[in-house]
Design a protein around this nucleic acid. Sequence first.
DNA 1: CACTATGTTCCCAC
DNA 2: GGTGGGAACATAGT
Length: 277
Amino acid sequence: MPELPEVETVRRGLTQLVEGAKVNTIDVLYPKMINVSEKEFKDVLQKHQIIRIDRRGKYLLFRFDNDMTLVSHLRMEGKYDVEPDGTEPTKHTHIIFHLDDNRELRYKDSRKFGRMYLVKNGDEKTLSGLGTIGPEPTDETLTFDYMKSIMNKARGKIKPFLLNQSNIAGLGNIYCDEVLWLTSIHPETQTNLITDEEIEALRKNIIAEIKMAIKGHGTTVHSYSNAFGEAGQFQNHLHVYGRKGEPCERCDTLLEKIKVAQRGTTYCPNCQRKVVE
DNA sequence: CACTATGTTCCCAC
DNA sequence: GGTGGGAACATAGT
């Protein structure tokens, strides 16, 4: 389940491996994965060079030398591998970019949930997910004033609020549970009742958590690995996610798991008290 | 075999 | 337009 730190780790790995590489031909084994026809996908990208790989939230943006961008979202299980030409594709291999140096960039996805979108440079905003995406969780872009203004208007629960990518880019289920525990906020607390002090603490925890997770190359839950096939190390730092029934590290109360907006949610019933009107 | 869990986005109703 | 409920995606696991 790649969230922002995992996607950033993939971006860095791919930059080392394929920045500057030229795509000779492309095999599209699962056409539903792309937003244009197989023919257009190939016609636009074949014989062109990947000049840079950017990231926005959980989206990867492959910049090509013809002013086109291939936007890629990994969703739950998507991953990229770079392999020598001619390696037998697995049943989870869906797109193969044959490079001109006897290597292949392969997109694999056991759930087939991932999607790729081909757009002109600058047209990224026309995509539903990217058009309304919120600020990146960094100290410069995620300001207290912004957080306060959107949180004071929100009447729903804080957890779905944080998962909404148009509020803040990049948080998923894992880091969401983590930052709420770190800030001692119950996931079902009504967003507009969170105090200014808590907003600032939450902001700081989000920024620090994402930064630390990127440093640790992301989380390994299920089958996540980066472009080099390395597992992330961040799972060693998780305080609540996947720890239902274990004692809270702050107060020893057993962690509980509930459903919030249909998502599994682990929290400490003692130090995360619900606040509602 | 039927059902459920999984994360995210999209769609619809209020 | 915010909010919530549910669908869809595809598969593995029970």
